[in-house]
Amino acid sequence: MITKEMCQIVSHKEIAADIFELTVKANFVGQIKAPGQFVHIRVSNGWDPLLRRPISISSFDKKKNQFTMIYRKEGKGTQLLSQLDTGEVVDILGPLGNGFPVGEVDKGQIALLVGGGIGVPPLYELSKQLTEKGVIVKHVFGFQSESDVFYEKEFSNYGETIVTTVDGSYGVKGLVTDVIKSLSFDCIFTCGPTPMLRAIKQEYSNKKVFLSIEERMGCGIGACFACVCKTGNDPSGNSYKKICSDGPVFRAEEVLI
């Protein structure tokens, strides 16, 4: 069930350059079904900025009724959000969309989790759940430079974690796709910039690949047709998926990106 709730902030801190970790209390945590689902946050009480901001759920705790998000301070909306303090409340609509299918990998298999920049957060809960299930997880994360890196230690608790930076200031210099080539695995779960997703989709068409994709949204619940993408294998060109309500996670072959 989708709920709109005034959620109290439990903690809110900057964990890397302009990267914030925000934990809130919400009764709807019990409704979260899978890692990779997202919420729609109203960042102002007024009408400017107008639209809600889609942010992924990066982890949740059903016992405490809390969930955590990690976001980058980008434009007007996330800037306003970053100013909120512990104890204040935020208007959140969620949980939304469909997440990563943990059931698609078996115990003992190897899952590769590939994240680019602010696409890393939703993989955290996924990594936790896969590990609990006995799946072997490996992480490859790409960032611009050293000051952008976050959660490396947290992910390391669950499995091997390789960080790449574009400028080489930390970890391996280069792109995630360069590193993946040398790894063995049974399936890929990935979230990040579209060019990265596209490269992975093309390179590993023979493997199980799950992508979480982004698009600008209006309603966030499937009513406005703002966030559609075309589906794969459709000669008519008219069939589509709504990223907010059918996704944001898709099997790579399901969508054209």
Partner: peptide
Amino acid sequence: RFGNPTPRVAETHA
């Protein structure tokens, strides 16, 4: 109808 390519929405002042 499939409609237009994305992005299909952009926020503006209010």
